[in-house]
Write a protein that binds this DNA or RNA. Structure first.
Length: 474
DNA sequence: TGAAATGTTGGGGCG
DNA sequence: ACGCCCCAACATTTC
């Protein structure tokens, strides 16, 4: 009998799992192992919600493994030490894990590989960093040519889940951490089954006469008052859904599209998946983006360092309803639609002139899908410091964005109940309500809801001036 | 995957 | 009838 360790980090699924498949091809028995790494228990970049989501996923995975005859092991401590011990206890002679790209992950895996037979398998992307390169062998730094090259590669075909998986008996394991009920994200039940159900509902429809949401994605994805996005990112983050499964479903939807609009919707969603792969590639080839601007010319911007402004942004108390609604949604649910991320990020960086890295960290703490590559890519895009980023002079107007993407204010009223009775005409800029109206709807600006923390027109000019003078621009 | 400022055009009111 | 102005609507440029 041979045994191999399946070292699980963020690949919490049985279907389409090339790491597990590689381990099964090599060994008769599999030791699925999760190591409670003290690094993550103390990291300021991991908040309680994402940790609870992970614990929930581990419990789900353990349940599924039991049904197949297997068992999830949990050990606490340094990965190298715990892996070495488990190999000694069990006679396992190989370790399989998914390749990962953050600085910490690479350091950790290199340290293990130096002493133990660790095999890293590509699993987090459809086409791993290095598979999509310019003809010269250089990485792409612009999205559109990257996506063109990506689409020229073979279409993915996900693997089925294995039918049986045997784990050696009588191996000690710690208890799987139970998520604290109060920190469990209510809108996002954890686990592979839930992920598959949501993917099906999004790309194939929920069985009603309505078309699949992916077909209207082009029109609705930016509407914050409508659930127009897939909301699959938390599942992709922990591999409860694989990028290949998602991309395969996107290609299927493109094939099934009956109209130009449907085709465009599915194609746009596929592009979002490719953005994710683009940023994985960027992080792999340009690891300095974690901490430094991709473009060094932006390293000299003098940020305001305004802790009060940052605190108001975090608390959803800037006085701009769309920004505040989105920040409250983030803190309460661990998730925000992409449009809201762009608006809140632009507001922090451009209107408040707060260092984008502060926002990046806050998002990492609160987002269930907090992924270093995508999150960093998004923030650098907004700050104008990244690859293929928004030009520095593009400044979102939080009132205009609100009117466009939450036209009736339904999203605002949902997350800011204090504004529930504000008339439509003032919902995007409530400080313009006449005092009599404020009285009438019981929303006094300055008492029930704050006045705007900055004047947007003024803030825009300040941002343009700061970017211009500090980034060596003419 | 902006917004604001500036420029152009053309219809209509009016002397 | 004609020129002038106003200004919406749209286009282009600039940040």
């Amino acid at each position: 009998m041979t045994a191999a360790i399946w070292w699980i980090r963020r690949d919490l699924r049985l279907a389409d799992n090339p790491v597990l498949a590689a381990a099964l091809a090599r060994a008769d028995q599999i030791l699925p192992l999760f190591v409670l790494d003290p690094f993550f228990e103390t990291s300021t970049y991991v908040g309680v919600a994402r940790r609870a989501f992970l614990w929930g996923g581990l419990n789900e995975l353990a349940r599924e493994l039991r049904q197949m005859g297997g068992r999830l092991m949990v050990r606490r401590g340094q990965p190298l030490e715990q892996l070495r011990k488990l190999m000694q206890e069990t006679g396992a002679n190989a370790i399989f894990a998914a390749a990962d790209y953050t600085a910490y992950a690479r350091r950790r895996d290199a340290a293990v590989a130096a002493f133990l037979p660790l095999r890293l398998i590509e699993s987090h992307t459809v086409h791993p960093p290095g598979a999509v390169l310019k003809p010269t062998g250089e990485p792409y730094t612009v999205f559109t040519p990257f996506s063109r090259a990506w689409k020229n590669l073979p279409r993915p075909t996900p693997l089925p889940a294995p039918e049986r998986l045997l784990t050696p008996k009588d191996i000690a394991s710690e208890d799987i951490p139970l998520p604290v009920a109060s920190s469990l994200p209510a809108g996002f039940p954890s686990g592979e089954k839930e992920a598959a159900r949501r993917l099906r509902a999004f790309t194939e429809g929920s069985g009603t006469s309505d078309g699949a949401p992916v077909f209207s994605y082009g029109a609705t994805r930016d509407r914050v008052d409508v659930d127009g996005t897939s909301q699959l990112s938390p599942y992709l983050r922990f591999g409860m859904l694989s990028a290949r499964q998602a991309a395969a479903a996107a290609f299927d939807a493109i094939d099934r599209a009956a109209t130009a609009i449907e085709h465009k919707g599915a194609e746009t969603w596929l592009n979002e998946l490719i953005w994710r792969e683009f940023y994985y590639s960027i992080l792999h080839y340009y690891p300095h983006v974690l901490g430094q601007p991709f473009r060094p010319s932006f390293a000299g911007i003098r940020w305001s360092g305004d802790l009060d402004a940052y605190g108001a942004w975090c608390a959803g108390a800037t006085g701009y309803p769309l920004v505040d609604a989105a920040m409250r949604q983030l803190v309460q649910t661990g998730w925000m639609p992409n449009r809201a991320r762009m608006v809140t990020a632009s507001f922090l960086v451009k209107d408040l002139l707060v260092d984008w890295r502060w926002g990046e960290r806050f998002f990492m703490q609160h987002l269930l899908d907090g992924d270093p590559a995508s999150n960093n890519g998004g923030w650098q895009w907004t700050a104008g410091t990244g690859t293929d980023a928004a030009p520095y002079f593009r400044v979102f107007n939080p009132v205009v964005q609100s009117a466009k993407f939450d036209p009736d204010g339904a999203y605002i009223r949902r997350w800011l109940p204090e504004l529930a009775a504000v008339p439509d005409q003032h919902i995007h800029a409530p400080w313009q309500m006449p005092p009599s109206t404020q009285q009438a709807v019981n929303c006094i600006i300055g008492r029930h809801y704050p006045p705007p923390i900055v004047d947007h027109a003024w803030a825009r000019e300040r941002a343009l001036a700061a970017y211009q003078s500090d980034s060596g621009r003419p």
